[in-house]
Design a protein around this nucleic acid. Sequence first.
DNA 1: TTGGAATGTCAACAAGGCTGACTTAAAGTC
DNA 2: GACTTTAAGTCAGCCTTGTTGACATTCCAA
Lengths: 169, 169
Amino acid sequence: MADLPGTQGHTGESLLFLTDEQLRQGIEAMFFAYRGFTADPDRILSEMHYGRAHHRAVHFIHIVPGTTVNNLLSILGVTKQSLNRVLRTLIDDGLVESRIGRTDKRERHLFLTPDGRDLEHRLSDAQRARMRAAYRQAGPEAVVGFRKVLEAMMDPDLQRHYSGLREPR
Amino acid sequence: MADLPGTQGHTGESLLFLTDEQLRQGIEAMFFAYRGFTADPDRILSEMHYGRAHHRAVHFIHIVPGTTVNNLLSILGVTKQSLNRVLRTLIDDGLVESRIGRTDKRERHLFLTPDGRDLEHRLSDAQRARMRAAYRQAGPEAVVGFRKVLEAMMDPDLQRHYSGLREPR
DNA sequence: TTGGAATGTCAACAAGGCTGACTTAAAGTC
DNA sequence: GACTTTAAGTCAGCCTTGTTGACATTCCAA
């Protein structure tokens, strides 16, 4: 592919000739791949009567421990009422701890309890295994391209959350 | 990027050293990218009080015109009750036509009406525009890698539906 | 000190998944 | 011809997870 005549030299130019069919295949690939992507954690979650919303909350609390509800809201892109319901069950079940802010008592800072960390680990293990297998099968060059396209597909303000987590903080 | 020292040459080998952090970034990239991926059609759909379920049905009826309900079920991976609710509204609204099978009269074959094709076009236009922009921004090599990883991430039986649509039939 | 903004909670509703039970019609089988 | 299986559709009811609206608490700035 890197040697197709006339496609190299200046980046991207050949892609001016993207057919609708090529794009459609990319769209479907996203659809089916996302199903595979969530399948393994979904199985674990449904066993304990949780859903994807719980997974997302647990994931980002793990990544940004001590985050406020508001911050989590902007990452997840749901209403606070929606998040709150999920958060409440996680707190009631002892997976998440909510501490009242010290400087601003309106804020709640969220942390995983040991049980929460345990669930997070099980979920991310399953998802990482799938990811690792796909990466190996596709090869390192493919992975770089994969990431590039995904990053270009994000909404700019969502990309901020994503990149923000990668940058030193 | 293709010139990073030590990452090129033999495919795959360097990725034996995938850190959890690298994998986690891939997972988050999938999460945020999928949000961007569905954002544009979601806007169009919500204007007309439809949801993603309607989009998926319309999309695959467009791709496989004349498909039976059962076949659509296996592509979408939902129950017939769930699909039926969506399908009924689409038929009532005159976007989908259901024809009784000629050889097997138990089957219903599904087709888009002109109005249905119109909606399909508006939805896929929006999604293709996002896809095209991402492809251009990432470059042709990245696109190949993107597709490779996505295909490796699918469940094998879902991949069948996906590939099946690409193969000549 | 008081009014507005920010944060989080409670209640109720809708979409869209799910299971289970059932009907109808057609096809296949003994 | 009677019985079974299959395709599709329907009704009822449940769950998760999104939504809006109303409200309490807390902070801060005029």
